[in-house]
């Protein structure tokens, strides 16, 4: 790779920080489409981290699976089911429904 050892380790730490922030935003998002988009951004950060770790074959496999297939699968599941996650459920749901 074109990056010498100090620079590539600093960039690896930067991309892992980016993935940590996006994982937290995925965890706290109530809208599931927003959570899926944050998860795709986290997959981009992991792809760049794999470039820094000198694994070009893994980059070719993971950028198709992580960014493309995961996002398409989750959007398909959300389009067939419900979109919003509720913080608390209201009282009396099990009697009426």
């Amino acid at each position: 790779m074109a990056f010498e050892p100090p620079l590539c380790y600093i960039l690896l730490a930067l991309f892992m920080t980016y993935a940590l922030i996006l994982t937290y935003k995925t965890l706290v998002a109530r809208d599931l489409v927003k959570a899926i988009i944050y998860s795709a951004g986290q997959a981009v950060a992991y792809t760049l981290a794999l470039v820094m770790m000198a694994a070009p074959d893994l980059v070719l496999a993971y950028v198709a699976v992580g960014v493309g297939m995961y996002t398409a699968l989750f959007l398909f599941v959300v389009s067939r089911t419900e979109r919003y996650e509720q913080e608390k459920i209201e009282r009396g749901v099990e009697e009426s429904g």
């Binding site: 994982t23 995925t26 599931l32 899926i36 998860s39 794999l50 993971y62 992580g66 509720q86």
Partner: peptide
């Protein structure tokens, strides 16, 4: 988290993190 799709998204992140740790 109570929603199952959110659990599925977090499971995908967990498996990718395990793979990244192995590399």
């Amino acid at each position: 988290r109570p929603h199952l799709v959110k659990k599925l998204i977090l499971l995908s992140i967990l498996s990718d993190t395990a793979n990244l740790l192995a590399v």
